[in-house]
Write a protein that binds this DNA or RNA. Structure first.
Lengths: 334, 334
DNA sequence: TTCTTTTATCAAAACGTTTTTATAATTTTA
DNA sequence: TAAAATTATAAAAACGTTTTGATAAAAGAA
């Protein structure tokens, strides 16, 4: 049995489909549909289990109440958390989210963007993988686009991210204040803006404190494997008194390596990390970290896209949210 | 500047929209569109950056190439991994996934299902929250529905899950074989089928080995908090020689508690857990666990829904995939 | 009473496709 | 050379809504 349509209701009630459409859309006041008609129509509609066809509506309406969300890796807790808040906000506002996992691959990202355009999504929230904003800029001429987490420097595309510079600067100072100078920083993907900003913050703190020469930067990937390998190498090699990992994934690898070397945190070596996933409360040793306001990021990104969709002017198109320190027991004062 | 339509191409080429539609859909052979016409049409279409409108197509076509995916918590690594594989498979097959995070709440789930129906999705993959299959059964009369991970016992709804019974049975025997008898099992949500099956497997192993009386079951939530609290209580109280946690989230809490009590794994206490998330490779101590075939689950669920969408008969509608043992160093033989 | 306004409704156009049916023009067959 | 078949295309219907523009009937005003 097929879905019922306005025509079906029309046949049963005797009213025209325009009257029915209006009655069901709560426009009876505007068009002076009689109370009697409204009641009859609603009753029959319920009887027939009528649900207005989304795609048919879409031909007549300017919007789809659908937003595309593109993230590099949905299984990464950081992006999963962002997705969660955005999906949740969407729910509350009658929107629906199409989630794309780009696997950090530019071609997948591009193909996905195109398929979202075809589907007439109202807007796109993206943690971009590409480092060329051109394609996204073109899209943003047609529909609203908001960048989250990762952004581009010289484009008009609005973004919401963490103040990565400030976070890294603060983290480094936590170590410096505890008299650590030989600090190893294990970084993620060197090309990503988030990594660049963190490195920038780290080096500035080292420089200002006069310990620039003792700063060490290693690695090139936001993965546990990278943290593991670089930590092992560094322990043999440059023997830092403290390690600053630029993500919680890197941290995991570092911890495993330190454990294999039977190094106690913070007795033998101090550690601080970017990110604060839910499981970090349960890590032992517990690691002091720089928490990104992930939930805020999701909510703000959603609100911004909604604002843009409704045609309102965005006054502050670029937002860097302040990170916060989560103090735990991984830093020893020398 | 608005999107271009078939009519625009018609005006520029002089061909009718039906000819254009056919030429662009590669049906020129079937309808004998001349090579000349096809070339001209394609050229103009490219010039105008024509993209067929998805919603208009949808009025004429039976399918939307869209699948709804409902999970209880997208930020849970287990569900995130499932979502990842499904999104990825969809990508490869020209489908798109609408992801809903039901937050394990029945009303959200129900509302979301309705909004998916309105949007004419081709099928639904769901890790159900509700324990009443009725609503889902009704939906499955209209469009294909596949359950993943969680399922119902007495319904015709097809499902893909892990053989939770077998997994728990195996895990328990790992402990029993190492001569542990006083085993604490910390469970998750008691109402969930997955938990029930695991408890069932645990108790059967204890029973068969003749140590039923030494089995202890505590807790009622798949959360780290639950693991933490129950472990602390049990250590004061019943002093098990081994703990079996029924999920990796519970495990995290348990580890924190054991660490606070300065208990060494496996010297002082043995541990085995269900689930094997990516971060477990980096936990120290490293915990022997029962890995669910998460990727397989996602792929199979997707393949099954595609098969159902294309109207093929499902020969084995209910599948329990075998879990596997990941041996690490958390069990000491007494 | 006649003209205007209001009320309650409907018919038809529009949205952008796909598909069905129709039809001139050409070529082949008998 | 007439009939049949093929070729290349177009016109129109359909999908299920929303919206625009009419229009009878009733009520109010002059």
């Amino acid at each position: 049995m097929k879905r019922s349509t306005l025509t079906d209701i029309s046949k049963q009630t005797g009213y025209s489909i325009s009257t029915i459409s209006r009655a069901l859309n709560g426009k009876s006041k505007d068009y002076r549909i009689s109370q009697e008609a409204v009641e009859k129509i609603i009753k029959v509609a319920e009887n027939l289990k009528f649900r207005s066809d989304f795609h048919a509506q879409n031909l007549c309406r300017p919007n789809t109440r659908t937003i595309g969300l593109l993230v590099p890796h949905i299984e990464n807790p950081f992006f999963a958390e962002i997705a969660k808040t955005i999906i949740h906000e969407a729910q509350k506002n009658g929107y629906i989210i199409i989630v794309i996992d780009t696997m950090d691959k530019v071609e997948i990202e591009k193909r996905a963007l195109e398929s979202l355009l075809v589907r007439n999504v109202d807007g796109i929230i993206i943690v971009p993988t590409t480092d060329d904003p051109l394609f996204l800029e073109k899209i943003s001429l047609k529909i609203p686009v908001v960048l989250a987490d990762r952004y581009f420097e010289q484009t008009p595309l609005p973004y919401i991210s963490t103040d990565n510079y400030q976070g890294a600067y603060t983290a480094t100072n936590l170590l410096l204040n505890a008299k650590h100078h030989r600090i190893l920083c294990i970084q993620g993907n060197r090309n990503s803006i988030t990594n660049k900003e963190r490195i920038h913050g780290f080096m500035d703190a080292m420089h200002i404190s006069g310990h620039e020469s003792e700063a060490m930067i290693r690695g090139n990937d936001f993965s546990a494997r990278n943290g593991y390998i670089e930590t092992k190498l560094a322990l043999k090699d440059i023997r830092p008194t403290a390690i600053f990992t630029l993500s919680s994934t890197i941290l995991l690898g570092t911890l495993k390596a330190l454990n294999e070397y039977k190094l106690n945190i913070p007795k033998d070596i101090s550690v601080v990390s970017f990110d604060n996933n839910s499981y970090m409360d349960y890590l032992s040793p517990s690691i002091t970290s720089i928490a990104q306001p992930v939930e805020q990021m999701g909510i703000r990104a959603f609100n911004m896209i909604i604002k843009m969709i409704s045609g309102k002017k965005i006054i502050h198109p670029d937002i860097l949210l302040p990170p916060s320190i989560v103090k735990r027991d991984s830093i020893r004062t020398i």
